[in-house]
Design a protein around this nucleic acid. Structure first.
Lengths: 183, 183
DNA sequence: TATGTTATCAAACATTTTGTTTTGTATTTA
DNA sequence: TAAATACAAAACAAAATGTTTGATAACATA
């Protein structure tokens, strides 16, 4: 990819991230983004069709990084036993997310949070089913999946937005403690 | 309150709700709202400062209705025992929400969902602490509160948006089943 | 190095959206 | 009935959107 493209794309991402820390997605204008990024108007529209597609591209970039290691494809995922593979995988994800915490803080605020969380949940819904076989709640399967996926994504939101004093290991521990069925 | 004001306010609410079923909050213009509501431009701005405050007013209206009965103020709320008071209270809330499901469907979609869920969680955070004393998870108190509040609000979202075949009693049951600590 | 391609910027532009103001009319309240 | 209020319609300035143009600089390749 052309170096100029990379630089412009990154400049827009950075500007967008900076603005998201100050105000909500819905109140950010394209004008503000191109001013902050210091790129031409036509250049912005050459990269992104709309403000929405910029947000989506940013989310995709992050998730591609976080979920790049084919999670859930290998190993023993029975987290009801001593292996604790599931908890390790989650910790792994949390470390990746922690690396992106600067961008995440903005993305998780207000109205853009819904978009980010939506994409996040899509990835989790592909990743989690193999893990929740060890859970034996007496509820519909799709309710349980939604419950676990939402619990984890909201755990991440809680962590990134105001409780960063905890380590990924601790956060994974909190989540597992609240999710696992004891009987 | 003036009958004309009531009619206009309701017309705007209905128009907004209708539009929310078709497109996302961010892509709805004030122009579309006043066209759909069939009210003058100046009239809209006499009632609401911005599109955002309209959304907020709509959320407030709904919650005032749902949480009007001083939940959590009376009775035995120890849901770890046979009383099941907590489950009854939740069922009660769910019935109120079911009455508003037409409006909720739109509010829960996409970017307006974040706003609605935000206000919803604020109410739940005031209501739930008295209930979660019966839970003995080994996690920080504010994490547990966030976990329970998010789980319930996401349960409602799951229910309203695509799983309305379940009764309020069933939904409350699913939630309790996944939240309560067994041991 | 020479050459063709591509990304960029600046500027101008039509269009849409926003939010305000004004004036006349209809409804409500007292 | 009389005063107050809510409304519609229209005009308006300001801001934002999205597109197009032409010139310049950076890039890739031979």
């Amino acid at each position: 990819m052309d170096r100029r493209q990379q630089k412009t794309r990154q400049a827009i991402f950075n500007a967008f991230s900076t603005l998201l820390e100050r105000k909500s997605f819905g109140n950010i204008t394209v004008q503000e983004i191109i001013d902050e990024a210091n790129v031409g108007r036509s250049t912005f529209y050459a990269h992104f069709e709309t403000k929405d597609s910029l947000l989506k591209a940013m989310c995709t970039d992050i998730f591609q990084h976080v979920f790049s290691d084919d999670l859930g494809k290998e190993g023993n995922h029975d987290f009801s036993h001593a292996g604790h593979d599931f908890e390790k995988e989650l910790t792994h994800i949390l470390y990746h997310l922690q690396d992106n915490r600067k961008n995440l803080k903005g993305l998780l605020s207000c109205d853009s949070g819904e978009i980010f969380m939506g994409y996040f949940k899509e990835y989790l819904e592909q990743t989690f089913p193999v893990f929740i076989n060890g859970l034996h709640y007496n509820v519909p399967a799709d309710y349980l999946l939604n419950h676990v996926v939402c619990s984890f994504s909201e755990t991440v939101r809680w962590w990134i937005t105001g409780h960063e004093q905890y380590t990924p290991e601790q956060i994974a521990g909190f989540f597992i403690e609240c999710i696992r069925k004891q009987g």
